[in-house]
C-alpha cells in the first residue's frame, strides 16, 4: 500500500491493476485453448508499463487489444464428428479478439455496437471486451442479440484482478468435446438432463466461455479415492 501512495505517480495503482487484468485475460485465453506466447502471458510489470503507458504514466487502453488463433488441439475439440451428409465439418471455433475499453464513465449502445461491428467485419469468431465500468442495460442487450455469429463476452477489469482457477478451492474444469460427451452419456446410460448442472453465468463457466449444452469434467482431489471426477452440463 505504501508504494501506491509513496512513489508519486497517481496512475501507478491503476496501471498495476490493469496489468493484473491483462495477465488474467491472457491466461484465460490460453486456458481456452488459443495459441499465445509464453512471454506474452507472463509479461512483467516493468515491460507492461513501458509498452502500454503514455508519457505521463497513464495507461493507454486502446493499444492493449490483441487477437489469438485456436491451437490444433482446440480445433480438434471443437470440430463436430463427421456425418454422412457432412463428411468434412468446419470447426466451431475461430480467431478471438480481445479489447480493453478506454471508456471510463459508462458504456452505452454505441460503444458496444462499434465493438460488435469490428468483430464481425474482421470475421472474428469470438470477442472479449474488458471494461473498467459496468455496461448499461441496453448495451448488454446488444451483446446478447448480436451474438448469433460472433460470441461476444464482457468482463469487468475488477473481476479479472485474480485468476480464480488458481485458487486452491477451485477444482480443475475440463471442457469435453462432442464425442467425449456422447461417450459419457452412453457409458452411464444417461440422458443429457440427468447430469448435474452448472449455470452459464457461473464464474468458471464464464472463464471457460461455456455454451449451453456443453459438458465439463470436474476433477477434485479426494482423500479416499485420490481423484474424483464429476460431470456438469452447462445450462
Amino acid at each position: 500500500m505504501s508504494d501506491d501512495f509513496g512513489s508519486g505517480n497517481i496512475h501507478d495503482k491503476e496501471v498495476s491493476r490493469l496489468w493484473r487484468a491483462w495477465r488474467t485475460i491472457h491466461e484465460m485465453v490460453a486456458d481456452r485453448g488459443y495459441e499465445l506466447a509464453e512471454e506474452e502471458i507472463k509479461m512483467p510489470l516493468d515491460e507492461f508499463k513501458r509498452k502500454f503507458t503514455n508519457g505521463d504514466g497513464s495507461p493507454n487502453r486502446s493499444i492493449m487489444s490483441f487477437s489469438a488463433r485456436p491451437s490444433a488441439s482446440m480445433i480438434k475439440k471443437f470440430t463436430p464428428p463427421p456425418t454422412a451428409s457432412n463428411p468434412d465439418p468446419a470447426p466451431e471455433c475461430g480467431t478471438i479478439w480481445v479489447e480493453f475499453c478506454p471508456e471510463k464513465t459508462s458504456i452505452g449502445i454505441s460503444v458496444m455496437k462499434k465493438f460488435v461491428e469490428h468483430c464481425a467485419n474482421n470475421s472474428y469468431k469470438a470477442g472479449i471486451l474488458v471494461t473498467a465500468v459496468a455496461l448499461s442495460a441496453q448495451a448488454r442487450k446488444v451483446m446478447t442479440v448480436t451474438s448469433q455469429y460472433t460470441l461476444i463476452e464482457c468482463f469487468l477489469e475488477e473481476d479479472l484482478l485474480v485468476n480464480i482457477t488458481h485458487h486452491e478451492l477451485v477444482p480443475t474444469h475440463i471442457l469435453l468435446s462432442r464425442e467425449e460427451k456422447m461417450a459419457l452419456l452412453k457409458r452411464y446410460r444417461l440422458k443429457e438432463t440427468q447430469l448435474p448442472r452448472i449455470l452459464q453465468k457461473d464464474p468458471i463457466a464464464r472463464y471457460l466461455g461455456l455454451k449451453r449444452g456443453q459438458v465439463v469434467k470436474i476433477v477434485r482431489i479426494s482423500e479416499t479415492a485420490g481423484r474424483y471426477a464429476s460431470y456438469r452440463l452447462c445450462v
Partner: peptide, 11 residues
Amino acid sequence: LDLIDERNCLN
C-alpha cells in the same frame, strides 16, 4: 430509465 442511462452514456 434505460433511455436516461443511455443518454447519460453519451454525456
